[in-house]
Design a binder for these strands. Structure first.
Length: 270
DNA sequence: ACAGTAACCTGTTTGC
DNA sequence: TGCAAACAGGTTACTG
């Protein structure tokens, strides 16, 4: 579910509720996520104060002073701010309690994760080999063009590879390729530098616009108070097989690329 | 190093 | 209507 815009929306949503606040209790109802939730999570976090709420790719990091809580929402995860009067629903696996308030982790498919890291989270195996942030200066035409040389992989798979660039998932990959006029199955090595310049700009643009709209809600993404994100109305191709291309009017096609559904206009994208 | 596939899990939609 | 298959926004592990 959540790609970079949804995770950033979540970060911005929860930060004002938990920054500077002390953790009074932690309740784990389901520890079997992608990796087991650490058995000593409650013991180690209780009494700590949240010093910062940051994001790296699709990971959220809550720094409690030398101890970092690492959270990933997987395909179906969400975080909400609620209170003790709300009984946990099915799949509400974990609560971080701040006195009267709760930060509640919900994840039906359990592809998400909650881990504790020491003081150098960027050195942890899950974070160490991540590519640059797409909205940072490090992600530019030269970088992506150089990486693409001699690579036969479909361009859609390349930009969804978190070792190449973080945060671009199945929705925004399709959208960015539509905006830049590149066919999602085109081999990465067979795209010109000029077209990579367009692609980099398209990725930045679509992610920034989605953040501005609070992310994309298709089925289950919700913001910190349960609100939807409104970027779904801006989607050009994702989920729109059979519809008319908003640019040229020909029919939007779908096809599986790298085990994921892809949506594109065969007239606008070559 | 790179590319392709299976696997993790539950809920909802689709098709016979 | 009922049931089974297919599909869903992510990532890693394994294979060749």
């Amino acid at each position: 579910m959540p790609e970079l815009p949804e995770v950033e929306t979540t970060r911005r949503g929860i930060e004002p509720h938990i920054l500077g606040r002390q953790i009074s209790a932690v309740e784990v109802r389901q520890s079997r996520l992608r990796y087991p939730v650490p058995a000593d999570l409650a013991r180690k976090l209780t009494g700590k104060t949240v010093r910062s709420v940051t994001r790296r790719g699709k990971y959220l990091l809550l720094d409690t002073g030398g101890l970092q809580l690492l959270i990933h929402l997987g395909m179906s995860g969400s975080l909400r701010i609620t209170d003790s009067s709300q009984p946990p629903r099915k799949h509400d696996h974990l609560d971080i309690r701040f006195g009267d308030k709760l930060l509640r982790f919900h994840d039906p498919r359990r592809f998400g994760l909650v881990l504790l890291l020491d003081a150098a989270p960027e050195e942890h195996a899950l974070l160490a080999s991540l590519g640059p942030e797409p909205l940072s200066e490090a992600f530019d035409t030269d970088y992506l063009y150089r990486l693409s040389r001699h690579r036969k992989v479909a361009i859609k798979n390349l930009i969804m590879n978190s070792h190449v660039v973080v945060g671009v998932g199945n929705i925004y990959a399709s959208e960015a390729l539509f905006l830049s006029g590149i066919h999602p199955a085109r081999a990465a090595q067979r795209i010109s530098r000029a077209r990579y310049a367009k692609l980099v700009q398209a990725i930045r643009k679509v992610l920034q616009q989605a953040i501005d709209e609070g992310g994309t809600t298709l089925r289950d993404f919700v913001r910190e108070q349960g609100q939807p994100g409104y970027f779904a109305r801006r989607l050009n191709v994702y989920g729109k097989a059979g519809d008319a291309c908003p640019r040229c009017g020909s029919v939007i096609l779908t096809r599986t690329i790298g085990q994921r559904s892809s949506f594109y206009c065969s007239r606008c994208q070559k």
